[in-house]
Write a protein that binds this DNA or RNA. Structure first.
Lengths: 342, 342
DNA sequence: CTGTTAGCGCCTTCAA
DNA sequence: TTGAAGGCGCTAACAG
C-alpha cells in the first residue's frame, strides 16, 4: 500500500494547520493568497486528493443520487429510452459535480431493498425514479421518509405532491391523432403498451379526444394493448386483422412496438403507409433508420433527463421548486409512415 | 431534521457499548445470542440503520464500482448492448452487495476527470470500462495507479496485463462467415462499425479467415466501415451497390447496423434474403422482431456483464484471477436473413 | 463474551 | 488570517 496523502501531511509540509489546508481546498476567502499558493503547491507535489468519503461523512451529504430503473427482469430496459434519460441526467449532474448511483434490482423486492439501503444508509442525497407504477412501495417509502425524489413520468397518485418530469402525453396523443385525421384517415386504431402504464393511458386518452373532436366514433375494438416489448405487437396486429372493418391508420404508443407492428403487417401483406398508416411516440434512434421511417412524436427524452436532474438537485439544496409538475414540450417529426392526403 | 439514530443510541438504550453493537451488526460469533437479540430489538425499535459513509471511511472501502460508458455524446449509447451489460453487472453486484456508480461524461475529457475523482477520491473500489479504445488516457491512469479495473471487450495494448472479459470475436466472425459459405454464398461482403474498434477488427479478421479456408479470395472493396450508428449503414450499402460484381451475402458487425442496411437494401429494391443474405452479431432484442428476423451471433451480452462483475469483485478482494482474458462463448441464432442452400 | 480507546480524513466552531 | 479542538458514525485492536 502506497502512502495515502492526507490533509495533515500537507499541513505538516507547509507548516500550517490542517484547518488552513481545509480552507484552501474550500477556497475560503479569508486565507491569504500567499498561503493558498504555498498549500496548493504542496498538494501538487505530494499528490494530494481529498477523500470524498471522509468529506461526505462530515458534511452529511454525498452529492450522489440514486437512479432507479424499472425491474430489469423484463426486456423493457432495452428500450433506448433509458440510455437517453441517463445521458440527460448525467450531463447536468456532471456540471454540478453530482454522481449517479444506479439501481440494479431485478425484482420489485430487490429494488426496494436497494432503495432502502441507499436512503437509510445515507448513501445518496436523493432519488430519481425512471418509471411510475401503481402501488409502488418505493414511492410510499420515500414519501413517508420525506426523502427528496423525483419521478420521470407521471405518478398515478399524489400527482400534486410528487415532483415529476413528464410530457403532456394527452396532448401528444391528441396531436398525432389529429394529424392522421387531417390526412384523411377515419378508421384509426390504437395500440398501446402495458395498459397499466400511465403513458399508455394518457396517450390513449388524447387519441380518443382527437377522435371525438372530429366526430369520429371511438370503437372499443380499435384499442389494443400489448406487452411493452414482448413479441413486438404481434398479437395486437393479429387482432386488428380479424376486425370486420379494418383500420386505415394506427396510433402506436411506442416506436419500439411500431417496429414489431410493421413486421407483422408486412407478413400479412399489408404495406405501410400504402395500405395502412402508422404514427407513434418517442423518436428513438431507430425510428429514423427503419423502413418506412417513422412519423413519430419527439418527446425529448434527453431533456426529460436534464430536467429531472435539475429538479432533484434543487430539492437536495432545499431550494423550492415552483411547480411539482414539469412539462417537457413535444413535437411531431414527419416522416414516411403516414399516407398523406393529396 | 429528525433525530439520527446512531450506534451510540443503541448502545445507550441496551446498556452495552458501541463496539458490542457494532459486532452485532457484523454478526460477530462471539457475542451471546442474548445480547444479539436485545440489541437487534433496540435497533428495530429505534429505527437504526448503519451509516454507510461512516463505515466506508473506517474500512477504507466503499463496495461500489465505477462503471464507465463510452462518451455519451454520440448515439452509440442507444445500442441496447449497454443496458444489457449493465443488467448483467447489476445482477451479480446485487448479490454481493456492491453498487454501481455510473460515469456520465460526454467527452473523453469529462470522463477522465470523473474517473480521476472516483479513484483519487477513493469513492470506488474498482472500475469497469464498457469499451476499449486506442490510447485511452484512462487506461494509462488506472494502470499507473495500479487500480483494480476490468475492460469489457479487448484492450488494444497490454492484452496480457489487463483483465478483460470478451468474446472470441475472431472465431465468431469465422463461424458466421463459414455458415454463409456452407449455404452456397461465395461473394461475401463485410460491413463493420468504426474501423478502430477492436470488435470490428476481430470480427473482420475471422471473416477473412473463413474466406481463406474456403479458398475464396478476400477482396478489399468488399470490406466497408461505417460509423457505428450514424445513418445506419446507408453509405455502406450505396458503396456496395456500386460494385461491379455485387455480393450475394453480407456479414455485418452489429445487429443495429443491419437494420439500417436492410432498410437501404430495400430502398434499392433488393430483398433479404432472396437477393442478398445478411448475418450479423449481438442478438439484441430487435434482431428477432424486425423483418426479416436476423440470423446473428448471440454473444451473451448479459453474461459479459456478469463475468466482468465477478472479476472486478475478486480483484477488489485481492483474490487472484486465474487468467487475464475471460472468454464468453457465443453461438449462432439461425433465423430468416440468410438464404439457405436447398 | 464485552468495554475502552483510538482513530478513518475531513470540516467547523471557537478562540486568538 | 490562522490554529486548536471536537466530532461526523463507525470499526478494530487491545484489554479484561
Amino acid at each position: 500500500m502506497i502512502k495515502i496523502v492526507t490533509i495533515k501531511d500537507i499541513a505538516k509540509a507547509t507548516g500550517c494547520s490542517p484547518s488552513t489546508v481545509s480552507r484552501v481546498i474550500a477556497n475560503n476567502s479569508r486565507i491569504s493568497e500567499k498561503t493558498k499558493q504555498k498549500v496548493r503547491k504542496a498538494m501538487q507535489d505530494l499528490g494530494y486528493h481529498p477523500n470524498l468519503t471522509a468529506r461526505n461523512l462530515v458534511v452529511q451529504s454525498t452529492k450522489t443520487i440514486g437512479v432507479i430503473m424499472p425491474s430489469s427482469a423484463d426486456k423493457s430496459l432495452q428500450n433506448p429510452f433509458f440510455a437517453e434519460v441517463l445521458r440527460g441526467i448525467g450531463s447536468y449532474f456532471h456540471q454540478e459535480q453530482f454522481s449517479i448511483l444506479l439501481s440494479t434490482g431485478q425484482t420489485e423486492q430487490e429494488k426496494f431493498k436497494e432503495v432502502e439501503r441507499m436512503v437509510l444508509g445515507k448513501y445518496v442525497d436523493g432519488i430519481i425514479l425512471l418509471y411510475s407504477r401503481l402501488n409502488d412501495p418505493i414511492i410510499d417509502f420515500l414519501k413517508e421518509k420525506d426523502f427528496p425524489f423525483v419521478i420521470v413520468g407521471k405518478p398515478l397518485e399524489y400527482k400534486n405532491e410528487i415532483v415529476h418530469v413528464d410530457n403532456d402525453n394527452i396532448k401528444a396523443g391528441k396531436d398525432i391523432t389529429a394529424y392522421l385525421i387531417e390526412n384523411g384517415h377515419r378508421r384509426i386504431s390504437f395500440i398501446g403498451g402495458a395498459a397499466d402504464l400511465v403513458v399508455t393511458i394518457d396517450r390513449q386518452k388524447g387519441y380518443e379526444m382527437a377522435l371525438k373532436e372530429a366526430a369520429i366514433p371511438v370503437l372499443k375494438e380499435y384499442a389494443l394493448h400489448t406487452e411493452f416489448l414482448k413479441s413486438g405487437g404481434r398479437e395486437a396486429v393479429e387482432q386488428i386483422l380479424k376486425l370486420e372493418v379494418k383500420p386505415d391508420a394506427i396510433v402506436v404508443s411506442d416506436d419500439l412496438i411500431s417496429v414489431g407492428v410493421i413486421s407483422m403487417l408486412e407478413e400479412y401483406g399489408l404495406k405501410v403507409p400504402e395500405d395502412i398508416s402508422l404514427a407513434s411516440f418517442n423518436n428513438i434512434y431507430f425510428s429514423e433508420i427503419i423502413k418506412p421511417a417513422l412519423t413519430t412524436v419527439d418527446i425529448q427524452i434527453y431533456q426529460l433527463g436534464v430536467e429531472s436532474a435539475k429538479a432533484i438537485i434543487k430539492m437536495c439544496m432545499n431550494q423550492k421548486l415552483t411547480r411539482k409538475r414539469i412539462i417537457i414540450p413535444h413535437d411531431i417529426v414527419y416522416r414516411e409512415s403516414v399516407r398523406l392526403k393529396k
